[in-house]
């Protein structure tokens, strides 16, 4: 198993999915003009990422077009499983972070001091959780992915 191929597949799949999602959001929210336009612009980024990933893979003899993304299935080796879990933790934390953002905003809009205090106390720790998972992935990836 080649670590680089594995991540290329996962990224290709993920960027492609994100491009689709952004396009779908832009479609669903045509009347929210800024969201529509920016989401469309950002979808281009992800499309472009997908294309460049495919080109890069092609140059390395790897066809990314129709294979499922292996990183979405639990991988076997422990180092890879750890990266996979850290990635999922990070995504969950990111989701929570955005919800904290929403809560803080609605708290301000409704002048709900108790809610705002709650969000202000907890959200920074959610961001620290994200920094931790990011640091761990940064530190552990080189060894995990070069030793497959």
């Amino acid at each position: 198993m080649n670590g680089i191929d594995l991540v290329l597949r996962a990224l290709h799949h993920g960027e492609s999915r994100l491009a689709d999602e952004l396009t779908a959001v832009a479609d669903r929210h045509r009347a929210d003009h800024e969201v529509h336009h920016v989401a469309t612009d950002l979808a281009h980024w992800s499309h472009e990422h997908t294309r460049r990933l495919a080109d890069t893979a092609h140059d390395r003899g790897l066809n990314l077009d129709d294979r499922p993304a292996p990183l979405d299935d639990p991988p076997e080796p422990a180092p890879l499983l750890l990266l996979y879990d850290l990635r999922d933790l990070h995504l969950r934390a990111a989701r929570n972070s955005l919800h904290w953002e929403m809560l803080a905003q609605v708290a301000q809009a409704t002048r709900d001091d108790a809610l705002l205090a709650l969000a202000s106390a907890c959200h920074p720790q959610t961001l620290r959780q994200m920094r931790w998972t990011n640091t761990m992935i940064k530190n552990l990836s080189p060894q995990a992915l070069t030793s497959l």
């Binding site: 620290r128 959780q129 920094r131 931790w132 990011n134 640091t135 940064k138």
Partner: peptide, 9 residues
């Protein structure tokens, strides 16, 4: 670093 998590700034 974050003194509790070790995350690097």
């Amino acid at each position: 670093k974050d003194l509790i998590t070790g995350a690097t700034d």
